[in-house]
Design a protein around this nucleic acid. Structure first.
Lengths: 132, 132
DNA sequence: GACAAATGATACAATTATGGTATCATTATT
DNA sequence: AATAATGATACCATAATTGTATCATTTGTC
């Protein structure tokens, strides 16, 4: 029952650090030292964020990453979706089979209620709100 | 981001069915037909519920399972804990390392808030409330 | 221009969790 | 004695997670 996987977690921490150093370029090597996270893994994660236009990158000596968006507009739900796919707490395991309750499944309804709350919350948390 | 795993799901459906047939003993073979779930897997699940005193079992011909508790007192959070372990949305992946934020981690706090809501909800849903 | 330091892309690998199967022992009914 | 059920337990297959490794490309510095 993990809400956030490790890559998402690392991504959020990296984004927070980069947001706190908004005016300069941050290299993966620095992030690795600060966050104490495996460097090749973190590289992969940041490259994804770069492809998704959350970060901008600069190659070459002195290169690194910098935010491509206002941290007040980066929602953690978006980052989660990038690394974890669609956010659903809810998948019905019997969907292809003859589920006796079909659309009236009470369990499903209750879980959906919870899911809606969780998504609302996640959609309200920004990188900016994580700083300090 | 799965709230409920497949074994928990099957367990809840099986418990619901058994609760609807409160006055008699239900064999795994019948449940398998009704729920259309793999029989050996469901057996394993029900044996766990039996060990945990959620179900009582009767061996031998004509045997099977029957509720050991009032369905209004079986909470789905308990069933989830049995199959999924402690319910935490929250595990910090840097816990052993030098997390720069330590106890003040804002992300952790926000996730904890969500977690508390989810747990409160899950602790309020009983097998009885799933019937019909 | 050569070298060093950075990211881009991508393939591969190790570990763990999930979702099962298989088998033998035990018990109870007929 | 045979049959039909659960108890216990070991095993297995697949997928997801959590990484590593490598080579290509770009850019700054000497």
């Amino acid at each position: 029952m993990k809400l956030i996987t490790r890559d998402t977690d690392y991504a959020l921490r990296a984004l927070s650090f980069i947001a706190q150093n908004k005016d300069r370029i941050v290299a993966v090597s620095e992030l690795t030292r600060k966050l104490r996270v495996p460097q090749p893994f973190l590289r992969k994660i940041l490259q994804v964020l770069s492809r998704r236009r959350i970060l901008s990158s600069l190659k070459g000596q002195g290169g690194g990453f910098i935010l491509a968006k206002d941290p007040a507009r980066i929602f953690i739900a978006d980052i989660m979706r990038i690394f974890q796919g669609e956010l659903k707490l809810n998948e019905c395991f019997l969907k292809k089979l003859a589920c006796p309750h079909k659309k009236a499944c009470v369990l499903r309804k209750k879980i959906t209620r919870i899911e809606n709350y969780v998504l609302r919350e996640l959609n309200s948390i920004t990188i900016k709100s994580l700083l300090q």
